[in-house]
Design a protein around this nucleic acid. Structure first.
Length: 812
RNA sequence: GCCCCCGUAGCCCAAUCGGUUAGAGGCACACGACUUAAAAUCGUGCCAGUGUGGGUUCAAGUCCCACCGGGGGUACCA
């Protein structure tokens, strides 16, 4: 195997079949993108699957005559490098670049069809300069801003955690219970794009997995309803609440504000409940995320000794503070309608508050403890009485609007994207804090703000970014007024890096702009994106957001970055995800050593549909290896002249060959790559048979069939395919061979079998021409002897004729 | 809790629109040929009526309903 590698890698380097974008290249373009890897150690089985699949697509399109852009790079900033550095006293930079070199050499061995002239690393200043530039563009547009907010905090790691790093209320790294902490942090205003992120999904419908679109829809979580303004006794300012059920306003019996909101604090201030409120607030603050997540936790709260006035009937509603209302959704306050909202009902039952039904239903929520949220006729609701839900909502909004007490409103589950990280190994945020001028953007001419050397910095977690301790780096004059100021010491979330990297591949060395617009319009949007479903929400949502921002900035002319998305499954072992601690880790390098690159790639592709998980204990790389050897042997048997006319070949084998071409193409276009492999196996079997006991090895059809096998196999087993190609006397590389086009004349059968059923039971099989007309087939079927006998003169109720496959005669 | 997806031979998987008696391919297994023998190779065979129960239809693995089993997403979003 090493010999084969040593032979072909230099040839591929020389021929560069996958180099894209020469200026004189007139082929139409395709952009195939694999999600770029994080350089933590060598490639693993998951990479091997993903890259095998991306390669099938890229190589297929090259065969089809496209100019294919298939780049690779490294998502090289991030916490694992920093942790490894702390553990070993090493520089994150050297750790990262060593891993990149290792992965790159594994990818070359794995024969990935990447364009090696376009490699990028996100930790290179040439790359992250443009993160900073994009940040400043967004800052100018008001899309990057700083706010104080309660964020996830790991008390052990002493750092902020992203939502995705909180797993079941625990820190994903150290399993400590995560708490909330109020911090001043940078955000991207992704919520401004919530509607467009939802609406543009219609473009992706059918080309992205339905599951991913659904997950994004749920994550954005648009809901419609109304804002209603409530006066508060003894307070000048009214309080606005958001509700999806304004129609149930007559059923409101109390009012709840989020205990950790500023509103709650201001309502409690000076009331006789203030002390009790503070005790409760402290208790809630010390509750871990873990406990907060428990769904059946009993309701808790404190009465604030204040009242809100229901705008439709003037009733006094007691105001409570509770932690079941979220401070950062809607307005942090709700009207409570216990009869028709389960949470409100649970609260009402805990604190003995009244329940008033305003939508008719068969059961009584006060008795059953089950709130009724369904549609029904309204009662006890003044002007809404008798109306159904939809009409009642519309009418209530009309009434409120007329009185200036409310209006229709929309809310989202989606929150703004917190991008600050108190970490070293990331992109420095290009802002300088000046005692006089405040936040001052770093002037474009001073970009990039390069990370200070890790040497001499204490990278261990201590609650603030290690960058702050690099005094020489941090202390700079204010760009505006020149007095002593300090750089922002936080770095950006690494998801910023990956939100636009696919554009940087177009020209990774460009130092005047993040990318060229003309190139972007030439290559993008990406024709096929391949990656794991783990990024269904975060990365894919952030990238869509960035693309829309760049569209608004005039940097690109498209609104969606990824036209088609394929989520490959995971490679598991014995039914569960591989992990060292579980003891079921399969090392890619071991598999490659044992079976060879081609056999591992073939196994990955053949195991099943690309979206399905592969259980490595279910598949057989040994079997794949045997098949490849069997295919390879065909090429040694071919002994016809290189330029023999295929048309002179054995008709039966030619038909099988051309059927395989047509079927494979169909399967490739719909990502059924496992079926392509099956077709290749079928063709190999048929060719073997033809050689051993059919037309013989000298027949032109054998050469044509083997030629086709080599091209089909070149998608998954490039070394074997090249060996076959060379052995048959072709050159220079099968990767450059044009895709074989099936001859329609060889695809039609002369005769096909048609069944004649009577009452669904098969009574006769006929050989008919595939082009037979409905009338002819009906007549032929009805004139069959045993059919006539079976009908026995009765009048068929109906005769279904579906030429050329089936006739069904239904008797009464 | 809510939302979504999936159940086809011992195992992994095929099966355009609903259309022949569910089978392309592979794994495993068994047998035969070759061999002194084994490996390799070549060949042959093997096995389910599509999770369960209903429904629609001339016709259901495919469409609809309910249930069972497995997997995923989300987490008090008013």
């Amino acid at each position: 195997m090493h010999a084969v590698q040593d032979k072909w890698l230099p040839i591929w380097d020389e021929l560069a079949p996958f180099r894209s974008g020469r200026p004189d290249d007139t082929r139409p373009t395709k952009y195939v993108l694999d999600m770029f890897p994080y350089p933590s150690g060598d490639l693993h089985m998951g990479h091997a699957e993903a890259y095998a699949l991306g390669d099938v697509i890229a190589r297929y399109w090259v065969h089809k005559g496209f100019n294919v852009l298939h780049p690779i790079g490294w998502d090289a900033f991030g916490l694992p490098a920093e942790n490894a550095a702390i553990k070993r006293g090493e520089d994150p930079k050297s750790w990262t670049y060593e891993n990149i070199a290792m992965q790159k050499s594994s990818m070359r061995r794995y024969a990935c069809s990447f364009d090696w002239d376009r490699v990028l690393n996100t930790c290179d200043p040439e790359y992250y300069k443009w993160n900073q530039w994009l940040f400043l563009q967004m800052y100018e547009r008001g899309l990057a801003y700083r706010k104080n907010s309660a964020v996830n905090w790991c008390p052990s790691c002493q750092t902020v955690l992203a939502n995705e790093q909180v797993v079941g209320g625990l820190c994903e790294r150290c399993d400590s219970q995560v708490t909330k902490k109020k911090l001043n942090q940078w955000y991207f205003k992704i919520t401004d794009y919530a509607d467009r992120l939802l609406e543009d999904m219609s473009e992706l419908e059918g080309n992205w997995p339905e599951k991913v679109l659904l997950m994004q829809r749920n994550w954005i979580g648009r809901s419609t309803g109304a804002e209603v303004s409530f006066d508060i006794e003894g307070r000048d300012e009214p309080v606005v609440v958001y509700t999806t059920r304004p129609d149930t306003l007559y059923g409101a019996t109390f009012f709840v504000v989020a205990v950790d909101s500023d509103l709650a604090a201001s309502l409690a201030a000076g009331s006789e409940s203030e002390a009790e409120f503070n005790t409760y607030l402290n208790q809630v603050k010390s509750t871990s995320e873990m406990d907060r997540l428990a769904t059946d936790r009993p309701k808790t709260g404190v009465f604030l000794n204040r009242y809100a006035i229901n705008p439709v009937n003037g009733e006094r509603l007691p105001i409570w503070a509770s932690d079941y209302v979220l401070a950062d959704y809607g307005t942090g306050a709700v009207m409570a309608v216990p009869a028709h909202d389960q949470r409100d009902l649970d609260f009402a039952r805990t604190f003995n508050l009244p329940v008033r039904v305003v939508v008719e239903s068969e059961t009584d929520p006060a008795e059953t403890g089950e709130a009724t949220a369904d549609d029904g006729a309204h009662v006890n609701s003044g002007p809404l009485d008798g109306l159904g839900k939809a009409e009642a909502i519309a009418k209530m909004i009309d009434i409120l609007q007329g009185e200036g007490r409310g209006k229709s409103a929309t809310n989202y589950r989606l929150r703004d994207w917190l991008i600050s990280r108190q970490r070293y190994w990331g992109t420095p945020i290009p802002i300088i804090h000046c005692p006089d001028c405040g936040e001052v953007p770093v002037p474009e001419s001073q970009l990039p703000v390069v990370l200070p050397d890790a040497a001499g910095l204490d990278l261990s977690p201590k609650g603030e970014s290690p960058l702050g301790a690099a005094d020489e780096w941090a202390n700079v004059p204010c760009p505006k007024c020149g007095i002593q100021a300090r750089r922002d010491s936080d770095t950006m979330d690494t998801f910023v890096d990956s939100s636009w990297y696919y554009l940087r591949y177009l020209n990774p060395q460009l130092d005047t702009a993040p990318f060229e617009k003309a190139e972007a319009n030439r290559w993008l949007p990406i024709d096929q994106y391949v990656g794991g479903v783990t990024h269904a929400i975060l990365h894919l949502l952030y990238s869509r957001f960035f693309t829309k921002v760049m569209f608004d900035m005039g940097l690109v002319d498209f609104k969606e970055p990824f036209t088609r998305l394929l989520n490959q499954g995971m490679v598991v072992m014995d039914g569960s995800a591989m992990s060292k601690s579980r003891g079921n880790l399969v090392r890619l390098s071991d598999e490659l050593d044992a079976h060879g690159v081609d056999a591992v790639r073939l196994t990955m592709v053949f195991a099943g549909p690309p979206e399905d998980d592969i259980d490595w204990s279910d598949v057989s790389p040994g079997g794949a290896k045997k098949f490849l050897a069997r295919a390879w042997r065909l090429s040694g048997d071919v002994n016809s002249a290189v330029d023999i006319d295929f048309a002179t070949g054995d008709l039966a084998l030619r038909k099988v060959t051309h059927k395989a071409m047509a079927d494979s193409e169909l399967a490739l276009e719909s990502n059924r790559f496992n079926v392509v492999v099956a077709r290749a196996m079928e063709l190999v079997n048929a060719t073997r048979k033809a050689i051993d006991s059919g037309c013989g090895s000298a027949d032109a059809a054998v050469r044509e069939a083997t030629h086709t096998v080599a091209i089909l196999l070149s998608l998954v087993a490039p070394y074997t395919a090249e060996e076959m190609w060379a052995r048959m006397g072709y050159e220079p590389s099968v990767a450059l061979a044009p895709w074989p086009i099936a001859d329609p004349a060889l695809l039609v059968e002369d005769e096909t079998e048609c069944v004649v059923q009577i009452n669904g039971k098969i009574r006769k099989r006929l050989q008919v021409p595939p082009t037979i007309s409905e009338a002819d087939l009906r007549e032929l079927a009805m004139s069959q002897e045993n059919v006539i006998a079976e009908i026995a003169g009765r009048e068929p109720k109906v005769v279904i004729v579906r030429p050329p496959k089936i006739v069904n005669i239904v008797l009464g």
